[in-house]
């Protein structure tokens, strides 16, 4: 039984298991389902994730205000350019994160992970890593298990709601979940996965939720792209041996406390940050005049 990242990691270490195995055991016990049933359900969710991460790569998705329409398509074209600064894989991951964001904004089908606004990060990382290393479906779903398990601990001990904790709680937690998944998919240890989680949260501590005109588009789509990369680099740092100086559970607690202290203007109200800029306000006015 675990209620913290430390307890989860210890349990895995003592029994020489991966995090996903401990998380799977817990899920079966909690929901009285077999491992096969849990994997089937994971597969269904992963299907939805894959579709949302690919749909806008092929065709721009129209949405109210059209603030991000076509960005995924454009990024995918660019990712094929061998001269890109971050290289093909990272650009492709950003394109997939943008795609899910575009699909979400256009009233398409997505899987919240952990929320709708942050639905591009985990799919982009899972697909990106599995494509790069030719991983089989089973290994990818194990990554999804790792990510979800880390997510349940953060839901329990902190928050994943932008209205309660800002963007760090939505896109930041998505990155933390994805970072842990990426580490285990690369055969890193449970301890490394925990450090990757902490490093990803550290990298975006205090990030505010300031959606222009209240739409889940800008800066949500950009945050999905950048937090997907945050997940990748945090996983790489941990795989290289970097340890989080602050224990992962304390980082989660710090994120929660920072979120609580953020003024309400920075928590999904569209009253601060980018939403409160002259241009942000003008976009909002134009939108409601049309309506």
């Amino acid at each position: 039984m675990y209620n913290s990242i430390e307890e989860l990691v210890r349990d895995a270490e003592e029994r020489h298991l991966s995090l996903w195995q401990v998380i799977l055991e817990n899920e079966c016990r909690l929901t009285q389902k077999t491992q096969k049933e849990v994997f089937k359900r994971l597969d269904e969710r992963y299907e939805v994730m894959q579709k949302s991460a690919k749909k806008a790569l092929e065709k721009p998705q129209e949405s109210v205000g059209n603030l991000i329409t076509g960005t995924a398509f454009q990024q995918q074209l660019y990712s094929n350019n061998r001269d890109s600064l971050c290289g093909f894989e990272l650009n492709h991951i950003m394109a997939m994160a943008l795609s899910a964001s575009e699909v979400n904004a256009s009233m398409g089908k997505i899987c919240a992970a952990p929320t709708a606004g942050s639905c591009g990060i985990l799919p982009a990382v899972l697909i990106g890593v599995s494509e790069k290393y030719w991983l089989d479906k089973r290994t990818t779903l194990q990554g999804l298990l790792t990510a979800s398990g880390i997510g349940t601990i953060i839901v329990k001990n902190a928050t994943v709601s932008g209205a309660e904790g800002g963007c760090q709680a939505e896109c930041g937690v998505a990155a933390a979940m994805a970072a842990a998944a990426a580490v285990e998919m690369r055969n890193g240890s449970p301890r490394m996965a925990a450090h990757a989680t902490a490093i990803a949260l550290m990298n975006c501590m205090g990030l505010v939720c300031d959606p222009i005109a209240g739409l889940v588009q800008v800066p949500c789509a950009q945050r999905n792209a950048s937090q997907a990369i945050n997940a990748m680099l945090s996983a790489d740092l941990a795989l290289a041996g970097m340890k989080s100086v602050i224990p992962p559970d304390e980082v989660v607690e710090a994120m929660y406390k920072v979120g609580k202290k953020l003024p309400v203007e920075f928590k999904e109200t569209a009253l601060g940050g980018l939403a409160a800029t002259p241009t942000g306000k003008k976009i909002k006015e134009n939108l409601y005049q049309q309506a």
Partner: peptide, 10 residues
């Protein structure tokens, strides 16, 4: 946490 499957955006 990973879910629900839904129509976006909120």
């Amino acid at each position: 946490v990973v879910g629900p499957v839904m129509i976006g955006p909120s």
